[in-house]
């Protein structure tokens, strides 16, 4: 029993105008089968209008153990947020 089909990650766009969102994974022999399986497994109740499938091995992920170092540069840059700036109350539309 060693012929495990490759693993695919499934992303669904729930309706037009929204982004594709990761919903889970599945096994399939090829991409066409992956799309069919994704339809049967993840959209039995009209949950989507579009499906992406991606081989799991093709996903490059950041390492959660390195998250502090990776995201540290943004931490002390509060001036990137509008609330950082004090504007007198009389000034409107800003």
């Amino acid at each position: 029993m060693s012929n495990d089909w490759p693993l695919y990650e499934v992303f669904i766009r729930s309706r037009s105008g929204l982004e594709h969102k990761h919903v889970g994974s599945l096994h399939a022999a090829d991409t066409a089968m992956a799309l069919e399986h994704a339809r049967d497994v993840y959209t039995r109740r009209q949950e989507g209008v579009s499906i992406w499938v991606v081989r799991s091995t093709d996903i490059v992920a950041s390492d959660p153990a390195e998250a502090d170092a990776l995201f540290e540069p943004a931490r002390d840059k509060v001036y990137r947020h509008p609330t950082f700036y004090a504007i007198p109350e009389e000034v409107k539309n800003l």
Binding site: M1, S2, D4, L7, G24, S25, L26, D40, V41, R44
Partner: peptide
């Protein structure tokens, strides 16, 4: 649906490092 639920759960278990096989 029951079959689908099995698939969601196998896929969740696989993230822990066990294969579906």
């Amino acid at each position: 649906d029951e079959g689908g639920h099995g698939m969601y759960l196998y896929s969740a278990a696989e993230t822990l490092g066990i294969s579906r096989d």
